[in-house]
Design a protein around this nucleic acid. Sequence first.
RNA 1: GGCGCCAUGGUCAAGUGGUUAAGACGUCGGCUUCUCAGGCCGAAAUCGAGGGUUCGACUCCCUCUAGCGCUACCA
Length: 498
Amino acid sequence: MTEEIRVRYAPSPTGHLHIGNARTAIFNWLFARHYNGKFIIRIEDTDTARNIADGEKSQLDNLAWLGLDWDESPANPGEYGPYRQSERNEQGIYQPFIDELLAKGLAYKSYKTTETIAAEREAQQAAKQAPHYVYEYEGLTNDQREAKYAEFEAQGLKPVVRFRVPEEKVYAWDDIVKGHIEIGAKEVGGDWVIQKADGMPTYNFAVVIDDHLMKISHVLRGDDHVSNTPKQIMIFEALGWHVPKFGHMALIINGETGKKLSKRDENLLQFVEQYHELGYQPQAMVNFIGLLGWSPKGEDEIFSLEAFKDMFDEKRLSKANAKFDQKKLEWINNQWMRRDLDHVMPQLIQELVNADLVSAADAETKKEWLAEVIKVAGVEGISYTREVVELVRQPFFELGDMTDEMVDYLTSDDGRKVFSAWESAYTALPESATAEDYMTTIRSIQNTLEIKGRNLWNPIRIATTHQIQGPNLPEMLVVMNKQTILSTMAAVKAMYLN
RNA sequence: GGCGCCAUGGUCAAGUGGUUAAGACGUCGGCUUCUCAGGCCGAAAUCGAGGGUUCGACUCCCUCUAGCGCUACCA
């Protein structure tokens, strides 16, 4: 019998969707969809203090923006709900298993204060021992231990429940990405908490209960969970459950610090939302992330989610950490924008509205013209839509200041000759003149005056745009308003050429 | 410190005992003769180090080293 493939992405709503999380989600989605399995979203909100208001919504919104969909989640529960750990706890889903472990003597109540534990750890450090929890009921019978519980309860102490780690065991598994891994039970740091004093299960415990109850078959997650895995296997085994397959993907690390991406790194844009706001395309984000720590067979670099899904092969997941390369992301996004420019155009125009370069009304009525301006200005060179604002601002919506260098070109002997020849030629040209017409005109000035190169082009460019460099001038002239150009030229003439 | 993971160019990486060690980003150079952008062409690696195994190692083994991760009543 073949087991149904069910994988999950289980974020904790303590922040927005970060590149690293997005990657975990994407690869889980790819795994599920490639093998016709189910992709489930479960919210791990057992840390009530760190949950933030919109964390969950933001996570899901951004996932959807990336193009992912899911089969079960808090909003569309399947048969294994609820899908938030806090609600599962309220419904008492975890308690019976804690009670079971307690009853079997595999877990116990611990009343040690955090101060005591801290002091123990300090002493261990000082003695150059690895920090580990010290079992406080050593040698006591069950009854004696129960008596201790009563004693502590009478003092008003709140217990946590700790799992009694079988220290002599070695936990091993065949990792989907890393191969065989084994870790001795004594390395987990002693008996660990499965239920906090507030009654919430801890992460390593709740994960096991939920993965089992939700029939999760494969757990694909970050490398940083490798050392949690033995703890989790302990629980699966203690409860007599089948252990899912684990796969630990290499981490994405910050190129500057070399450390794993942290929400606290301010020097790097690392939330999906930030890229969304700058006008990165979701396909580009997926494309970039899909190539971090995974490689396709051929030499292509541009892939859609669908393409990744078809090609997906967990054996091609890389074992080594990958640095986040923003330059490559920019390039990939540029490729996606160019690939479907018509589709991106409304977004580009919207950027101009947001920047107050055009009104919302003009954005609609002049959209064809705006599209031309954007193309002429060189949209093929930008990395994300927000950049279009500075790309077109000058000279299409504002004129820049004249620099000394510009004035020199204009007021040189050649400049004066070129200007006056251009002035009469341009004035005579119809408004419908094409780029070829302008080119022909400029060439004829070149022939007549015998001036070429910068000395020819710069005076014209400067007089019409207040720029010394920019897109192809004939094309710009086509797109710019003739009256505006005429008055710009008149002003330049009045100011510098009299 | 302990345990675990890992190691091909600045970056992402292909490669699975015999190759001129793919490709992409970035960088640099050239061309595209108004500039910018774009496009095109081109350049740059003794595969972390040292030992093995082998006729032959980037590829297999060992040691070392570097890097990363974990070491919570966080997830």
